[in-house]
Nucleic acid binder design. Structure first.
Lengths: 139, 139
DNA sequence: CCTTGACCTTCCCATGATGGGAAGCCTTAT
DNA sequence: ATAAGGCTTCCCATCATGGGAAGGTCAAGG
């Protein structure tokens, strides 16, 4: 299988397959005499693993560890769960951060007429020297 | 005021102040004879504006527009609101994406014993050939 | 007066994960 | 035989930020 086939079978772009190889996430692919990379079903399986883990938001360094555990028949499931829980915490943190931004912005946007007149609570807030205004009062 | 003062008064690092100047987000600072950048209260005000907008998650290109509108006494508030609403949409999208990841991962983590035994639903899911291999790419 | 330490300057490099594209070689189908 | 398209490597760009080196400047204290 060429890299193009491996790509379409795994959902990982050829560019990324080469990159994963370069950082040691994927084993070095075999080569034809002409230098083309050659992939097996097993490689495609690995790539799909990486793609799924990426879809769940894992960083490549986490995926490196997950791949190691996946291929280790004697792994303790606790090791896997720990990585997953750490990532869940990270997701929770990011979600809360974005939600705080969204809440503040929504309050400001609701207060803004959105017409031809120049007065705008959004700019007033951004430019005010004091505190954020509604963020501390509300919720 | 030196860049260090401007930094501590605005909460923007000196590094970033220079960067914002280099990309034309901030006007070129005046210089002392020795080449030190010089800042006024007004510049600090601008920097605080940028910092607040960053805290709300706006991209620098959005902030460039917001700064333009802020300094334009005749702006229509609709222009500001449009930028804000677009950003709210983006936040909403990202939040939903992260929440979907979190949900999936939580289900998997709940099903994982997290002990010394090797069987692990998380790895089973990541490695299963089943859902979603080569077809639809969503971006 | 000279040293010291804290500041400033510019310039280069790194991040994380990905895409774009050029120059050149290989394969396959017409 | 030639054209199309796939493959190779290499370099560059993103986005916002930090790190650090090499060197100039300023203020205070011996």
């Amino acid at each position: 299988m060429n890299i193009g086939q491996a790509s379409s079978h795994s959902g990982v772009s050829a560019k990324m397959i080469r990159y994963y190889e370069s950082i040691g996430l994927m084993p070095e692919a075999g080569r034809t005499q002409a230098g083309y990379r050659v992939y097996s079903e097993r490689d495609v399986h690995l790539l799909r693993f990486v793609r799924r883990a990426r879809d769940l938001g894992f960083a490549l360094e986490d995926i490196r560890m997950l791949l190691g555990l996946w291929q280790d028949d004697a792994r303790p499931s606790a090791a896997v769960k720990e990585i997953a829980l750490k990532h869940i915490d990270e997701l929770t943190r990011k979600i809360a951060e974005l939600q705080a931004m969204k809440r503040s912005l929504q309050h400001l946007a609701e207060a803004c007429h959105g017409d031809d007149r120049p007065d705008c609570p959004i700019l007033d807030d951004l430019g005010s020297p004091g505190s954020r205004g509604d963020e501390d009062r509300c919720h």
